[in-house]
Design a protein around this nucleic acid. Structure first.
Length: 582
DNA sequence: GAGTTTACCC
């Protein structure tokens, strides 16, 4: 049959292939197959199925599949592969079940795709079930399946199990290495990601573009500019072609490591940029508070014909908020809806509230919040509103908002600290005490703050009152002396009353030895004059440290850059780039 | 006949 009709089938096949990923044309091609009587050809149906998946229509794929009378292994594998590749993970699992039900033995090709689908939906139980099928089928030592399992465990938040699978691989392909590195990075284990990257190079495996993308992400998390520069040199030296993924990762890394100028350098040297690259560059300027530059890149992007997406608007609005560009922000928000048809998401709302709040338009911010639908009142919206209340010392609204915040997310200890701060600022110390009791009753503890700083190509970590560093005594003495100089210059500690009540710790001690101050003191001790300090803090910088570091930048004539949880602070000659709005 | 990894966001 195949031989006899080969000629005609080949022509039909060509017609299907020509239809490509165009759903309408695929449907026409299918109709034509029905007319010519070829609609029972499994080869043709297989091709049609994969293409309709690629065209994004899982509904049509399902309909086609139902019309196949006796699907064979190849058809099933193609279906599983295509649905998994194009993100229809639940369908992949459904097709896999149908396959087993039809008594067709899965192959390594089946398993890689099904495991990827389980990874994409982080379904741990299902993935482990599939893994048991892998054991039974005897494909445990297949390197593709193993690499897929590494990704699967990493994506289901089990990086240690991923590592176990990885360690047990007799031979590791570059994809396996990449999966392990990205797995660590995606779980926030940046140091482990860099470690595996180094092991990979020691093993003589040449990193490729995907490797660098993941390790650059890890580096961004760490905020280590030194590591980032070294990686950049590695990339240039390796002769890897600079693709848009790599360029975006580099722009992001340089921005998040505090050198937005270098980010711009990479950006300018990249010829073909898509919306993601442009968005990364705008985001870089935004997080450093360079709103004018962010808007200029945004303008150029549109002039180039690159269409902004929802994320682009988040970063543009955020840049406006952090630079006090309220009128510009309003225009952007209006255009986003009207010209670009982007439906505002909660992230956009957060930016708008933040923008009004920082700009001093507290009532407008609150009006905006009240105009949101109940399901849009996520904790982030309340947090933004609360920040505005604190900044503008409106404690009545502040207390109200903080109570909403706790109702929205009762298990987050940070919210109680904010509420407690509000009560303290409003002078309601009885309430401060009761919040503290609630926290104790619910077993909630304040997140531990820590700061890191790179000195001589090594990263040092400090936490509040930390004495684990061998030079602790020297650092504390240096810091004490430094703070005296600051006091002479006019620095007065900003006491956070609520913290005092909450922590039951000796107030001045806690304040003076905050992690960011320790990191700055250490950096000043260990580096020469003129060297810019770069400190990374896991939480938001505290008000007292912010004030102290401004004075430190004066009395030591140093530039100090601090990245906190939400943005960068550039301290220079007694002022900060955030203009005290953060 | 075919598969596993990679970028922008409060």
């Amino acid at each position: 049959m195949e031989g006899k009709e080969g000629g005609r089938k080949s022509a039909e096949y060509e017609a299907v292939v020509r239809a490509g990923r165009d759903l309408k044309r695929l449907q026409q091609a299918h109709a034509h197959l029905v007319v010519t009587g070829c609609h029972r050809s499994r080869a043709l149906l297989t091709k049609l199925l994969t293409l309709s998946c690629a065209a994004g229509s899982i509904a049509y794929t399902r309909r086609l599949f139902r019309s196949v009378s006796d699907p064979d292994a190849f058809l099933f594998n193609s279906l599983v592969k295509a649905s998994s590749k194009f993100g229809f993970s639940h369908d992949t699992i459904h097709f896999y079940r149908r396959m087993l039900h039809s008594r067709i033995t899965p192959s390594t090709y089946t398993f890689t795709s099904v495991i990827k689908a389980c990874a994409d939906i982080s379904d741990l139980r299902l993935g482990m079930l599939v893994q048991s099928h892998v054991f039974v089928s005897g494909y445990v030592s297949d390197s593709f399946v193993q690499a897929a399992l590494v990704t699967f465990y990493a994506k289901s938040c089990n990086p240690r199990v991923a590592r176990k699978v990885f360690d047990e691989m007799p031979q590791r392909s570059i994809v396996a290495w990449n999966s392990m590195i990205s797995g660590y990075e995606q779980n926030g284990l940046s140091r482990e990601a860099v470690e595996v990257f180094n092991k990979m190079r020691e093993s003589g495996v040449e990193p490729d573009s995907a490797t660098f993308v993941s390790v650059l992400s890890a580096c961004s998390q760490l905020g280590s500019l030194h590591l980032g520069c070294w990686l950049h040199e590695c990339i240039v030296g390796s002769g890897i072609t600079m693709n848009v993924f790599l360029a975006t990762s580099l722009v992001n890394m340089f921005s998040r490591c505090g050198d937005v100028g270098k980010a711009r350098g990479v950006f300018d040297s990249t010829n073909e940029g898509n919306v993601v690259l442009w968005t990364a560059m705008i985001s870089g300027y935004g997080m450093h508070g360079y709103g004018v530059e962010a808007m200029e890149v945004f303008r150029r992007m549109k002039a180039r014909g690159v269409v902004p997406n929802s994320v682009t608007f988040v970063v543009v609005l955020s840049a406006c908020a952090h630079a006090g560009l309220i009128d510009e922000g309003r225009v952007v928000f209006a255009n986003m809806k009207q010209k670009y048809g982007v439906v505002p998401s909660v992230e956009h709302h957060v930016c708008m509230v933040d923008m009004f709040g920082r700009g001093g338009l507290l009532n407008e911010a609150y009006k905006y919040v009240k105009g949101l639908r109940p399901e849009e009142l996520v904790p982030a919206v309340w947090t933004a509103m609360l920040g505005a209340c604190k900044m503008h010392k409106n404690f009545d609204i502040g207390v109200e908002v903080a109570e909403h915040l706790i109702n929205a997310e009762p298990e987050n200890p940070g919210h109680y600290v904010l509420l407690s701060n509000m009560y303290a600022l409003a002078g309601r110390m009885d309430r401060v005490e009761s919040v503290r009791k609630v926290m104790i009753r619910r077993g909630l503890k304040k997140q531990v703050g820590y700061s890191t700083i790179d000195v001589d190509n090594r990263s040092y970590l400090f936490s509040m009152g930390d004495k684990s560093h061998p030079e602790t005594h020297e650092i504390y003495c240096y810091l004490d002396e430094l703070m005296w100089k600051c006091k002479d210059a006019g620095y007065a500690p900003v006491l956070e009353l609520a913290m005092h009540e909450l922590e039951e710790e000796e107030m001045e001690y806690a304040l003076r030895y905050h992690s960011e101050k320790l990191a700055v003191a250490f950096g000043l001790m260990k580096t020469g004059h003129g060297v810019t300090l770069r400190v990374i803090k896991n939480l938001r910088i505290c008000e007292d440290c912010h004030s102290a570091i401004k004075f430190i930048s004066v009395v030591t004539s140093r530039e100090i850059i601090v990245r906190d949880k939400i943005r960068f602070h550039h301290f220079r000659e007694g002022s900060c780039s955030c203009l005290d709005y953060w």
